[in-house]
Write a protein that binds this DNA or RNA. Structure first.
Lengths: 233, 233
DNA sequence: CGAAAATTTGACGTGATTCAAACGCAGTGG
DNA sequence: CCACTGCGTTTGAATCACGTCAAATTTTCG
């Protein structure tokens, strides 16, 4: 069965790259999977360095991937939302390169396999998978570039726009949505201090760009938000 | 012919990760290549976004890969030294994701192919290539982490140590070597301003850690250098 | 309800960028 | 041979964005 034939058809011209791993048309993958299972919030799906056990597709909920480097400062490499695929960056190495855990109770499909050989896909699909990983290198690089050379307000604006696009694609309102992640998690993802994030959210609210109450966010002025996100240095 | 069978045997425990692309035992690749050719300094080997034309193996000289993002601030993603392979990150996408040009006159082997299908390697080698690309994702991430959360002196110390290892592996002195790249290029690679780099080099010299005359560098106190590189925040 | 955790806000310190000027060095032409 | 020019590098001073520290406030959840 050709599960990867639509690989690469998505996200080819994404503007605000934050490298979420929804490279495939996930329905095909789900057909291969075990029954849906749920994982309560703050549970760990996979530990960094542990052997690869297969991919997961998010059906509902939110997860995060933390890559621990030597010292304890942790960096969140990805958030996973419904439709996203978890574990693509672990296929090759054979180990999960980060710890993946739920932020809220989530529903997941598991596509179990240890090595890529066990996945019933054709030669051409392997090529597509290869292409997919190669693209991920570039996405990582883009993210690095953004984190290094873009000021914090631009990074945050891009983040909100990305989330807006996500929710829009999922059929939800692009303007009002609930983010399961805490401020600290968003800050870690955006490589800034919690306090900086908090100040930025306050500033955006004062400017009437958005409103934030707890985990609920409303984009009141998407144009202004986009202007901040696109601001050249 | 099995050119990728030693894939992944190198660089598995590299400490100071700056992601140079020497993943393969290059001699196998060279056997597949066109005759050696030379490219004068400041010439471009491949342009960002142009179609993939094949891999290159550096025989001698130095090259750099620049990835241009929207605004003009350029980021050097890689330096290529003898033994390194150029273009691995372009295989999948089919386009070069950065502009690759010579810093000094360089000798190169060209392994021409357009798509991975044209490379005469086995299924298991494809797996290895896949593993290789997957690892590159992690390397990119590690570099991001270092650039973001390590202070500039640590980054520079790591850079010198990496270069020292490189030259050592090539059979040259690990303590005294000539770097073809300019200060500006090193600064771009390490994501800092030229002035910051210049100040750091001055400081290291005052501390007796190294001496720098033009493009010639001597590591006078590798222990002290390593202490800076390993310093936790 | 009450303790613990998360968030906000202010004051302050600092590493690194930016601006500016001076310096050294190589190549060119008078 | 020396002035002239352009380029890379160095150095100092000023500035800024962001992180850190600390205290206040709100939210969460048993």
């Amino acid at each position: 069965m050709e599960i990867l034939n639509k690989l690469g058809s998505l996200n080819t011209h994404r503007k605000h790259i934050y490298g979420s791993h929804s490279f495939l048309e996930t329905q095909d993958l789900i057909n291969l999977s075990q029954p849906l299972f749920t994982l309560r919030k703050k549970n760990t799906l996979a530990h960094q360095g542990k052997p690869f056990q297969g991919l997961y597709v998010v059906q509902c909920g939110t997860l995060k991937q933390i890559i621990q480097h030597e010292n304890k400062k942790e960096l969140i490499s990805h958030f996973f939302l419904p439709g996203d695929i978890i574990g693509l960056d672990a296929i090759g190495e054979g180990n999960y390169c980060g710890t993946i855990s739920t932020i809220e109770t989530s529903g997941l499909y598991h596509i179990p396999f240890r090595t890529i050989d066990e996945l019933p896909i054709s030669h051409s699909s392997h090529m597509q998978l290869l292409r997919c990983l190669s693209r991920a290198i570039y996405l990582e690089h883009s993210r690095m570039w953004q984190m290094i050379s873009q000021p914090s307000d631009v990074r945050l604006a891009c983040f909100f726009i990305m989330m807006s696009c996500k929710f829009s694609a999922l059929g939800y309102s692009p303007h009002c949505f609930r983010l399961a992640m805490s401020r600290k998690e968003i800050a870690d993802y955006l490589c800034m201090a919690i306090e900086t994030l908090s100040r930025l959210v306050s500033r955006f609210q004062q400017q009437g760009i958005l409103s934030a109450h707890g985990h609920e966010y409303c984009l009141l002025n998407p144009t202004a938000l986009a202007a901040i996100a696109e601001r050249k240095k």
